[in-house]
Nucleic acid binder design. Structure first.
Lengths: 113, 113
DNA sequence: TAGCGTTTCTACAATGTAGAAATGATAGTG
DNA sequence: CACTATCATTTCTACATTGTAGAAACGCTA
C-alpha cells in the first residue's frame, strides 16, 4: 500500500557483475568475472570498468574480497554478501513486477520481428 | 561465436520508463509515466528524473513524442519506436541469459530468506 | 629483461536524481 | 472586466552516481 521503500535498484553493470560472481563461484576474481560477462553478454568490457564496479560494490558491502595466491600469482577473490544477495533478489523482483504488465506479443510486433 | 555486437544495454531507469510507456499505452505522458513507475516499483521518483530520461530516449530514437491538448491542458504523449522495442527486447534477452546460470535456491539462502 | 596474468590508477562520458521555475488553462472574486 | 490563485504539466539547472577505457604498476617465472 505505502510508497517509498529504502531500496534502490542496482545499476546494470553492478547487477551483471554480482551475477557473474555468483556464476563463477570459487573463481570469482576480476579478470575471470570480466571473461564471464563478455562470454555471456557477447560484448567486450574494459578491465577498468570491472574493477571500478567491484570496488564500489565492496564499499557498499554487497561484495567482499580476499587475496589468495594461486600458482604464484596473487588474486583478489570476491564473494557476494547476504546484503548483496538481497539487493540482487530485490532488483530482480522489482523488474519482474514491472515487466509483468507488458504484452510480449505486442512488443515483438512493434520491434518488427 | 563472435564477440562484440554493437548493442549496449539500456540503463535501469531507461528500461523502466520504456516499459512504463508500453504499460500506460495511450496515456503515456510524463506525469503519468512517473505515477506508473512509482506505483509498480514502490519508490518515489522526481519528475525531473523522468523528463531527463524521456528526452534522452527520444534523442536516441527509442521514443517519439507528440503534443496533444486534452481538457485544455497540453500534454506531450510518448510512444515506443520500433528501435525502442528492439532495445527493450535485447536488454531483456541478454539479462535472461546471464541469470539463467544462477541457482536461485542458493541465492535465496545466501540472502538469508 | 622480457613477458604473462593480474590489479590499480586516472580521467572522462553517460545516466540518474532532485527540486524549483516556467507555462498555460480555468475558476473565483473584487 | 482585471486580478490572483491554483492546478496539471513541462522545462530548466545543477549535481551525484555509475559506466567506460586504457595505460601504468606489480610480482612472478622463464
Amino acid at each position: 500500500m505505502s510508497n517509498d521503500s529504502d531500496f534502490l535498484p542496482l545499476g546494470v553493470l553492478q547487477e551483471q557483475i554480482l551475477v557473474a560472481v555468483l556464476r563463477t563461484r570459487e573463481d570469482a576474481y576480476g579478470m575471470n568475472v570480466r571473461r564471464e560477462i563478455e562470454r555471456v553478454t557477447d560484448r567486450s568490457l574494459a578491465i577498468g570498468a570491472v574493477y571500478a564496479t567491484l570496488d564500489r560494490l565492496e564499499e557498499k558491502g554487497l561484495l567482499l574480497s580476499n587475496r589468495y595466491t594461486v600458482d604464484g600469482t596473487s588474486r583478489r577473490m570476491f564473494e557476494v554478501t547476504a546484503e548483496g544477495a538481497r539487493a540482487l533478489a530485490d532488483t530482480r523482483a522489482m523488474r519482474e513486477r514491472l515487466w509483468s504488465g507488458v504484452d510480449m506479443r505486442r512488443l515483438m510486433k512493434l520491434a518488427g520481428g
